[in-house]
Design a protein around this nucleic acid. Structure first.
Lengths: 154, 154
DNA sequence: TCATTGTTGACAGGGACCTGTCAACCACGT
DNA sequence: ACGTGGTTGACAGGTCCCTGTCAACAATGA
């Protein structure tokens, strides 16, 4: 039908699979995060803020999102009491997002539940397959992404 | 830090990579589809409708989406003239979505451009890595998805 | 010192997905 | 024949992401 090479065919299959799995993982993340009053998106933002006070624009860069998306999520996190904004001595406009004790608590609980879930679902897969999958996606990301997000050093 | 097994660790890395790559692929799809007046979502719906007249609920099942999402996308596709709704002799309420000549044209052009793009990006990857990646994601999807989407037989 | 340039948070508006709810419709068992 | 239950499209409302635009702010060079 379409003029796909073997590589093009395999890549296309991977693309469609990424779309499907992404939605399932996102939903699973929402279900994991819901008891803590969070969602996948808020959880991820909180995971960055957890490392230390940081302006919105920096969070966006780390996550590979736009400032606007992060701003919206951050406003909700603040309204729910998971983060607070404190003055930035280096920039009067760019205030720093800081995790609150409530936010830290939620992250701690979520960390435990995520670990249990990841061990359970990941345990049902072959280790080498998981690792090859990560490598494949990473290479594709590097091929597609003109400027990759900053390292989220753990 | 968190009590991750090796499997849990690899799985978590895969999850985060899926999130990042999904966004890049979605954006790339939008850019591919834009010249044809489509987007990634509309393109995918049109790809199902292309196989023959079908009600909205069936499209949703095939794609693993809700009827509501497909309905919205379908309304836009109809407004743009890519599909039309025709009476369903078997169900008065569930009218059939049918691709228009304009829709078929757009899909044909997009098919060629997608093939070129997939060959180019996929060609930069190792074939066995791509295939293992597909297998890994497929297995994860089957682990997560209680009722998998219908086959999109080509 | 001062104008230019780049970055920041904010605001408006839109796209694509979700859940919850409803009336219309079909199919099925009694 | 008829009610019951499941499915369908529609509508309301919400989340998470995007682009485009703007004024406030910082940093830089003339």
């Amino acid at each position: 039908m379409s003029a796909h090479t073997e590589h093009g065919d395999a890549f296309t299959a991977l693309v469609l699979e990424v779309f499907r799995v992404n939605r399932l993982l996102h939903d699973a993340g929402d279900q994991l995060a819901a008891p803590a009053g969070l969602s996948t998106a808020r959880w991820q933002v909180l995971g960055v803020v957890e490392h230390g006070p940081i302006p919105i624009a920096d969070v966006a860069r780390v996550m590979g999102l736009t400032r606007q998306s992060v701003r919206e999520t951050s406003a909700l996190l603040e309204a729910e009491g998971f983060v607070e904004f404190v003055d930035n001595p280096r920039h009067r406009r760019a205030r720093l997002m800081r995790i609150t004790p409530a936010g830290a608590d939620a992250m701690e609980r979520l960390g435990r539940e995520q670990a249990a879930w990841a061990n359970r679902v990941g345990g049902a897969q072959a280790l080498d397959e998981l690792r090859t999958g990560v490598r494949a996606l990473t290479r594709i990301r590097q091929t597609l992404d003109p400027d990759p997000p900053l390292a989220d050093s753990d």
